[in-house]
């Protein structure tokens, strides 16, 4: 299943049961799943906000590179590594690209 390496045209999505939320009382972002609470850092939050089940890994990386004026290949590698890690623990899923 998700053992296959992440490709640029993969479309990641937050599955049902996984939520990215800003908690007002704590003034902080959290990524939550079953018995899991992650406190994503700023970069992770920026990536997660763009994961919408429509954008591909490439599109997300390109957008981030443009917005933060960073080298695209570096950002691509970071995004792919991040997505791979979350797929392995089922905090993300692959969506079929809408043709």
């Amino acid at each position: 299943m998700s053992a296959a390496p992440v490709r640029g045209d993969d479309v990641p999505a937050l599955p049902r049961g996984v939520r990215l939320q800003f908690n007002e009382a704590r003034g902080q972002w959290f990524l939550q799943g079953p018995e899991r609470v992650f406190e994503p850092d700023e970069i992770a939050v920026e990536i997660l906000k763009r994961i919408d089940g429509v954008r591909t890994v490439d599109v997300i990386a390109r957008g981030l590179a443009a917005e933060f004026a960073a080298p695209e290949d570096e950002i691509s590698a970071d995004v792919a590594a991040f997505v791979t890690e979350l797929l392995a623990i089922r905090m993300l899923e692959r969506r079929e690209p809408s043709a």
Binding site: M1, S2, A3, P34, E35, L87, A88, I89, R90
Partner: peptide, 8 residues
């Protein structure tokens, strides 16, 4: 089951 199932 690595990558498919989380076992706690």
């Amino acid at each position: 089951t690595a990558g498919r199932l989380v076992i706690d």
